[in-house]
Design a protein around this nucleic acid. Structure first.
Lengths: 232, 232
DNA sequence: ACAAAAGTGTTTATATTACACCCATGC
DNA sequence: GCATGGGTGTAATATAAACACTTTTGT
């Protein structure tokens, strides 16, 4: 126990509240997860979700965005609460209630930078993952269930991609996450019926086959997906 | 600030963590919500969700069950986490992060009993609700969205009913929650396809029309719904 | 015999699946 | 001209929606 300036006193004991971020990306058609190597005890040297304490004056989702930036150097777009995890004993030091957020980011143009609390940051293939610290395995499972569920109901897969993308890339994201093959024609029919992407008119050339049309999120859909983002 | 025994000290400020319960029932074909009238400040006299502080040694869902029992006299079956709500300022006294749980209970055979913190407990029609304390309106909306979503995907409606029920009662629950009319034959076809209820062989008689078959949750489905219950 | 809710099938429209070939480019 | 992924339509099947009459009881 630290004895230096114990400035905050309460009549009853208070838990700590943290946020943990489950960040998915797709690289080379594989689903991957962003993990940090813990620099301090407990679980020093183990891999864990990026996360940290919620400040007294910030919203939960703001804390998630900030912690992620601090610990990994990444700024995030899509963000969704997965749930609160608070089993007593999940942190061996003290009672900690963690609010988990899931996020999805494009695999391109990222620079990872391990922050102060982390010895290391890197992408891990989702399957198999290394053993995770605390109850982070459980949290990851819940977040993955969320994504698979949403993926089959709405078009969130473009969150994994840069602003302009081809339909084949979009399809590969779906295949990476659900772990299966999809029929190209049926997939495109489904995309069209959702009315969430539109062609840009540009093409991706330079490869030794027919160039693919580039698409972007349509304006109507962009407005919607902003609303969906942060639940407090 | 209370000055008597401030026994717990921390180097950094800690938020409080509470649970709030969104308890739905259906009475007379209407969706209703269990609210308490606050007996103390802030929002004294306002209606609010039952809830309270999480103890240091109990899981979040256990806290929810306990607080509900203490404040309203009700013991709950089905229970599901809705999410964490932690906007700074949502409680005017101090930083409070609340984990919300939704529950669904039969309307029959209940005795409501206002606990120590509550001046009153009663069922309110879901539409329109009275103005609610804190951000409880927002929490209720999130919980209702959850129920509607699940209702259309699986058979949870029997949670609103006693152990034995008629298919018409089950249908009325669906209609009350989604707010619309359903076709009797299609509804029954859907129920049958889910394979979650089975006839008891008994009938509900005594009314001046043909007696209805009584059904119960099938054994296989009962096992499943227990698993679904509490996510920490 | 009448009122009141219970129970029961068929037809139509819609959504999902399965499946194979030509096209545009780089080398 | 050949290798490579890009792009396109149709038929079969499964799922969901619309719709009306007979049955059983209590009074």
């Amino acid at each position: 126990m630290s004895t230096k300036k114990a400035a905050y006193t309460y009549e009853y004991p208070h838990p700590s509240v943290t946020v943990d971020m489950v960040i998915f990306t797709v690289r080379e058609r594989r689903l991957e997860l962003l993990l940090i190597e813990r620099g301090g005890e407990p679980f020093k040297g183990s891999w864990a979700l990026p996360g940290g304490f919620v400040r007294m004056d910030e919203d939960l989702s703001d804390a998630a965005v900030r912690e992620l930036q601090e610990e990994t150097g990444i700024t995030v777009r899509y963000l969704r609460q997965v749930g609160a995890f608070g089993r007593p004993g999940r942190d061996p030091r003290e009672r900690v209630i963690s609010v988990a957020f899931g996020a999805i980011i494009p695999s391109t143009g990222l620079t990872l930078a391990a922050g102060t609390d982390a010895a290391n940051v890197r992408w891990w293939p989702f399957d198999p993952l290394p053993p995770l610290a605390f109850d982070h395995g459980e949290i990851v499972k819940a977040a993955h269930d969320h994504i698979v569920d949403q993926l089959s109901r709405s078009l969130i897969a473009f969150q994994f991609l840069p602003a302009e993308f081809t339909l084949t890339e979009l399809q590969q994201v779906h295949e990476a996450i659900q772990g299966g093959e999809l029929d190209k024609r049926n997939f495109r029919k489904w995309i069209a019926s959702l009315d969430t992407v539109e062609p840009t008119g540009r093409k991706r050339g330079g490869e030794q086959h027919r160039p693919a049309e580039l698409y972007r999120l349509s304006k109507a859909a962009a407005r919607l997906s902003r609303t969906e983002s942060g639940r407090t």
